[in-house]
Write a protein that binds this DNA or RNA. Structure first.
Lengths: 109, 109
DNA sequence: AGCTTATATAAGCCTATGCTAACCTAGCAG
DNA sequence: CTGCTAGGTTAGCATAGGCTTATATAAGCT
């Protein structure tokens, strides 16, 4: 499996977000989801296999964290499809977010 | 289907890359792939449905182009997972690219 | 209207993937 | 060594998704 397929699944994206800027054990991650522990274990395996997570063992626990380099491919893709417009994307994203939150009140900007 | 699933497939990513910075007709796109036209038509539908492509009709042709805003979600995700490290990702990506191209010769940098 | 070109839609097949239940393994405490 | 805790592995099922063939639709031409 490749990176794009790995992040295609919302649970795996949630896992990455959970691990944003910190380390968590496999069990701590699993406990935040409604599915069974093996399901999460399988997701973690996928994420490790494609290089999006790294693992450090601590006793019987496995501490997971994000491997930033693994996401480079995603960033690369954006850059390829939107040459030199990447910088503007953030604003667009924020605007859409705002619109969504405000419930499409009025386009007064 | 959602944006992340849409770009999970390499053919759909190829389509987006083909359309980077230009417009092409559905047929022109289909002709660049080994699969049948219906297969590409189905991919185009997916990409339109998730907001990654927009379509303009010209006679019997349908001209496709990338909808930059559709990719905002991807960019957003990167930003969420890698807060304030996004700027560095580009360098990382380029380095990995270079390494791959040079066939892992030597890490002389 | 009938023909052609461009593209979409439908049905069916096949494979990939996500989930669960059941089981296996490793580390550590006693 | 026993047992507990953390977590990985396997088998089997169900659904989703990509592909092909066949067919439909739409616009333009004559």
């Amino acid at each position: 499996m490749e990176v794009f397929e790995a992040v295609a699944q919302s649970k795996r994206r949630e896992i990455l977000k959970l691990l944003s800027g910190r380390e968590l054990s496999a069990g701590e991650i699993a406990s935040r989801f409604a599915v069974t522990q093996p399901a999460i274990s399988q997701h973690l395996k996928v994420l490790k296999d494609v290089g999006l997570l790294s693992e450090r063992r601590e006793g019987t626990k496995r501490m997971l964290s994000v491997r930033a380099e693994g996401l480079a491919e995603l960033h690369d893709f954006l850059a390829e499809v939107l040459p030199s417009r990447l910088d503007r994307l953030k604003e667009v994203a924020e605007k859409e977010e705002r619109v969504k939150r405000d419930g499409r009140r009025a386009k007064q900007n």
